[in-house]
């Protein structure tokens, strides 16, 4: 990967972190409603994955989607505006935190029913297969989603029909407050793909380069072999499941231990150690992000509320 691309990955990860930190503040201030699930700690996963796609490859994810949206090229302005429910959000304020999507950026949501988007992802790939192209659909979901029926129906269908889907399980160790070993018969989630004779691998999700390399290989396999592939990415969310999480299910020491493996810190060190970037260059990126996010907050706050007539639009196309 070229130096500019590497620095861009760093920029994206810092952007996600900063957008979400500001988002959390706005949530506490009562400017963002509903549920909000932060991606902080997991930035390397979608950053590495989406860097490995071609623009024609589709992305679909669960409700922890702000980072994925930014990685897909949706602007911080639009993400922030959607969080605030403004008319300038990509879904005109009708979707909110859990339903970020941009057809233009080939990002198909943002889905809030656990595992619900898994068969839909198979459908996106089915649409491409039917159209006769070799686009790949990247479908991300949490470890918790692998225990629900939708997951198994979707995986089975993708194998039976040879659909081009890269299934990505973001194993952040907990489905809400229930740990993997308390909820899943197998704690190494990728073993579930074995049951569908699906090629699979596991990768360290705190290392953006490792995720990128694994995704690159997996996408190439999916595209050329016309077969699904299952990638388990081991990661950790530093914040609670959602904004109102008392975190009774894990100890502060455990969180602290994972935070020592901060994906941004790891990548920062990598860039410095490999002499890809100077500390000054990285500081400049962080300052640029700070400014961009500040502008995004101002943009979102200054944006209009959706018009009341919007209540009745988009229910039907006809």
């Amino acid at each position: 990967m070229k130096k500019e691309q590497l620095l861009d990955l760093y920029y994206q990860m810092v952007l996600i972190r900063r957008v979400e930190e500001r988002g959390a503040e706005l949530y506490q201030a009562g400017k963002i409603g509903g549920f909000m699930h932060l991606y902080i700690g997991q930035e390397a996963v979608s950053t590495g994955l989406i860097a490995a796609r071609e623009p024609r490859d589709r992305v679909i994810t669960a409700y922890r989607d702000h980072g994925v949206a930014l990685n897909c090229g949706i602007s911080a302005n639009q993400v922030m505006a959607e969080l605030l429910g403004k008319a300038t959000g990509m879904s005109k304020g009708k979707g909110g935190s859990m339903h970020m999507a941009s057809v233009e950026k080939n990002m198909w949501g943002g889905h809030a029913i656990v595992g619900g988007h898994i068969p839909i992802a198979a459908g996106l790939a089915l649409g491409d297969q039917y159209a006769g192209n070799d686009n790949v659909t990247i479908c991300m979901f949490g470890d918790g989603a692998t225990n629900i029926g939708y997951f198994h129906e979707g995986l089975n269908l993708s194998k039976v029909w040879g659909l081009r889907v890269l299934w990505v399980c973001e194993n952040n160790q907990y489905g809400m407050g229930t740990s993997v070993e308390r909820a899943s018969a197998v704690d190494e989630i990728r073993q579930k793909a074995e049951g569908y004779r699906m090629k699979n691998a596991a990768v360290n999700g705190m290392d953006v380069m490792a995720v990128y390399e694994a995704a690159k290989e997996a996408i190439a396999y999916v595209r050329t072999e016309s077969q699904p592939y299952f990638l388990e990415v081991n990661t950790y969310r530093f914040r609670g499941h959602s904004m109102g999480d008392p975190e009774r299910y894990r100890k502060a020491e455990e969180v602290k231990k994972w935070q020592e493996n901060d994906p941004i810190g790891i990548f920062n060190k990598y860039l410095l150690d490999k002499k890809i970037a100077s500390r000054k260059a990285l500081d400049e990126i962080e300052a640029r992000v700070e400014e961009e996010v500040q502008k995004a907050v101002e943009f979102a706050e200054a944006s209009p509320e959706p018009a009341l007539e919007e209540l009745f639009t988009d229910v039907y196309a006809e």
Binding site: R58, A122, G123, E153, L157
Partner: peptide, 18 residues
Amino acid sequence: PIAENAIIGAAIGAAMVG
């Protein structure tokens, strides 16, 4: 397969992409 979630879910996905 006998899998109604997959049938309707996949149909939705295919419809989303035209």
